[in-house]
Simulated assay, not measured.
Amino acid sequence: MALPVELIDNICTFLRPRDLAAVAAANSVFYHVAQRILYRDISVDAVSRNLPAVLTIAHNPHIARHVRTFAIRITPYSALLHPYYRALATAIHNMSELTSLEVCADQAASWVMRTPDRASHPRLHRFATNFHLDHHVAHFLNKADALLELEVDSAPTTLQLRDGALPRLSQFTGSSQAAQAVVPGRPVQHIHLSSGDLTQEVAVNLAKSSAPLQVLGAATSSHSVDLINTLTQCMAHLVHLRIVTTYNFSDAPDSTYFANIADALTSLQDLQSCEIWGLHWTSSKKSFNDETKVWQSQSFNAHSLLTEGNLLDNLLFPY
């Protein structure tokens, strides 16, 4: 008696790739099940020596439709010719059922994201790239209506996405410049600025998200209490806040400085965790009968304000 396809599919999920290849040779039913699993999640890089996988996906649209998550990481030292990038562009076009796409390659090759106008990725929820948010990437994003998470680099100041693009976007990671081109008017609730300077002007622009901002992680060259006041005023529903600074504190701020920050934080009723200038802040109830939060910083340590050489390596929250 033949086994149900669903049972075969479940069994095959426990097999190693080389075993799946052997199963695929058994008969036509096993072939289609094994192929679907083999190409479900693809990660391509020079170290793994699987760069030809891109060519397979480009030349076989029926295989490309099995791919759900695709990641390609090409270092600047990978000597890949123009035809390979053409194949990558075709592969991206063919993978119409993608849910997650990550492309890390030569920034001059951002044209691979310009898929034909008729192409679409209706299930794509996550897109991450080291490309700048140029017109090629914008062309791709303008058709990614299901996207929830976006990670992208800097954007030209004149670039604008089409009205109504990215209607479901909830999380953004990237430069402050790209964030200002993407966030306003879209329901972004989590923002992680991996580069660029968080200024009061940038904060006001990011607050133009159509949904309440809940998570913000960023770096700034400022140590101004005015910046914190701006954040608490325009992002009243923050739950997690982390701001690091490149400002060189030559003298420890006085108690008034910290009291002003604490006063500003009291307006953030939803705030659960907070780190400012490298200091962790904790909250407690004002009194037994008063639920108002009172915020207090850890003891000041000038050395804790700057990490060992790179403030931008760890802006993502561990929550």
Rank of each mutant, 00 (worst) to 15 (best):
H121D: 11
N50W: 02
Q189G: 08
D117Y: 15
L88M: 07
S299T: 13
A146F: 01
S100A: 13
S195E: 12
T230Y: 04
I228N: 10
N289S: 07
S195R: 08
I37G: 09
A181E: 05
Q160A: 13
F127S: 03
R114E: 04
D254T: 08
Q189C: 04
L166M: 04
S222R: 05
H121W: 11
Q296M: 01
S250N: 08
A21L: 11
A165L: 02
L141A: 12
F127P: 06
R65H: 10
L265R: 03
L227F: 13
L312P: 13
L88W: 03
L305H: 15
F172E: 11
L159E: 10
T282D: 02
A236E: 15
G309H: 03
L141F: 10
S195P: 10
D9T: 03
L312D: 14
F317Q: 11
A165Q: 01
L3F: 02
T220M: 02
S273C: 09
W295L: 02
M113Q: 06
L15C: 04
F70S: 02
W111D: 11
D270G: 00
H66R: 08
S267E: 00
S287K: 03
G174S: 03
T292G: 01
S250F: 14
A179V: 12
D163I: 13
V202S: 07
P318R: 09
V239L: 13
N27R: 06
S209E: 01
N205Q: 14
H66S: 14
M235N: 05
F14D: 14
L159R: 04
V244W: 14
G174V: 09
R186S: 02
T90A: 08
Q200E: 12
R40E: 14
L7K: 02
A24H: 00
L305T: 15
A71R: 12
F131D: 10
S110A: 01
A105V: 10
V112F: 07
L306N: 15
L38E: 01
R86K: 06
V23K: 00
T75Q: 12
A119F: 12
R40C: 10
G217V: 14
L268Y: 08
D263S: 12
Y77H: 03
V44C: 06
L141Q: 08
I276H: 06
V225W: 05
Y77Q: 12
P156D: 14
A58M: 11
A262N: 00
V239N: 09
Q107H: 13
V44S: 00
T292Q: 09
A211L: 02
E291M: 04
L20G: 00
L51P: 10
A89G: 05
L15V: 03
D145T: 11
D290F: 09
A2W: 07
E275C: 09
N60H: 14
L88F: 07
A259F: 11
A219F: 13
K285F: 08
E291G: 09
T69I: 07
Y85M: 06
L88H: 03
H280Q: 04
S304T: 07
T69Q: 15
I191F: 07
D19V: 09
I8G: 01
H136M: 00
H125S: 12
Y247Q: 06
R162L: 10
L311H: 02
A264C: 05
S287D: 08
G185H: 01
N130E: 05
E6R: 02
V183K: 05
